[in-house]
């Protein structure tokens, strides 16, 4: 028996919009810790890890660890039927091949349930080791989204370099080249407008912009994004989900020519 009641149902809607273009089918895992997912894109270049901690739910009942295979496009279709202010409850019975999403309007005058078929998904769970990163950049998520979008109109790849000067995003394409440098900036009115660069060692890595742009679909989840870089490791692009957890995207670097 599974019953997860999320008062801020819009968070789940946003999570699905953030990941559904990257991953088609995925197993959602439910345990005492929370509601989580780990999945790779079809070409195994990127990985998404989601955690919604049990404490973030108003009511969280998960009698035993369970893994539920879902088609994310179908799940998104159903969650789009929930209002932005709706409370969403995820319900499942042991051994059932379906899951129910219940949507309650804030005034309790409309209650809907949508039943979705589950599927068997063969997925490999990867162990993600704790790592020391050479550089960690924390910046406004909208700014990161803007940079990825702007650069992708010039080139296909982005070189992200962190030095003591700041963080540089560069691209090159048929029509020319572009470089965007951000310096650390903590003298802002609001903390969510700050850019904070933590550098242990200079680092420079090349990534496919197509994936970076896909990650920025998570922008509505968080005003800030954290980009962790280490040579010889996938970059981590993390969007924290207020009070609840995170969506982390891992992207394997391209090999430098």
């Amino acid at each position: 028996m599974l019953e997860l009641r999320l008062v801020q149902g819009s968070l789940l809607k946003k999570v699905l919009e953030a990941i559904k273009d990257l991953v088609t089918d995925a197993n959602f895992d439910c345990s005492a810790t929370g509601f989580s997912l780990q999945a790779m894109d079809s070409s195994h270049v990127a990985l998404v890890a989601l955690l919604l901690r049990s404490e973030g739910f108003e009511h969280y009942r998960c009698d035993r660890n369970i893994s539920m295979g879902m088609n994310l496009n179908n799940m998104s279709k159903m969650l789009k039927c929930a209002g932005n202010d709706d409370i969403i409850t995820i319900k499942g019975d042991d051994g059932s091949d379906t899951i129910t999403f219940m949507f309650e309007s804030p005034t309790q005058d409309k209650i809907a349930d949508f039943e979705m078929k589950l599927m068997d998904i063969d997925s490999e769970h990867l162990g993600i080791p704790e790592a020391e990163y050479h550089a960690i950049v924390r910046m406004p998520s909208a700014e990161f989204s803007r940079i990825c979008k702007d650069l992708s109109s010039i080139g296909d790849t982005v070189v992200i370099s962190v030095t003591k000067e700041g963080v540089k995003f560069s691209t090159r394409g048929d029509i020319g080249a572009a470089n965007i440098v951000l310096r650390q900036n903590t003298t802002v009115d609001k903390p969510e407008e700050a850019t904070i660069i933590e550098m242990n060692e200079p680092v420079s890595l090349t990534f496919a912009l197509r994936y970076m742009n896909s990650f920025t679909k998570a922008t509505p989840l968080s005003s800030m994004v954290t980009i962790s870089l280490s040579s010889e490791l996938p970059v981590v692009v993390e969007y924290k989900i207020a009070e609840m957890g995170y969506v982390r995207f891992y992207l394997a670097p391209k090999i430098e020519e």
């Binding site: 195994h44 990127a46 990985l47 990867l126 162990g127 891992y250 394997a252 391209k254 090999i255």
Partner: peptide, 14 residues
């Protein structure tokens, strides 16, 4: 064109 690596080259099956 820079060749693309895969995630599985960095993280192993748990």
């Amino acid at each position: 064109v820079n060749p693309q690596r895969q995630i599985t080259a960095f993280f192993s099956k748990s």
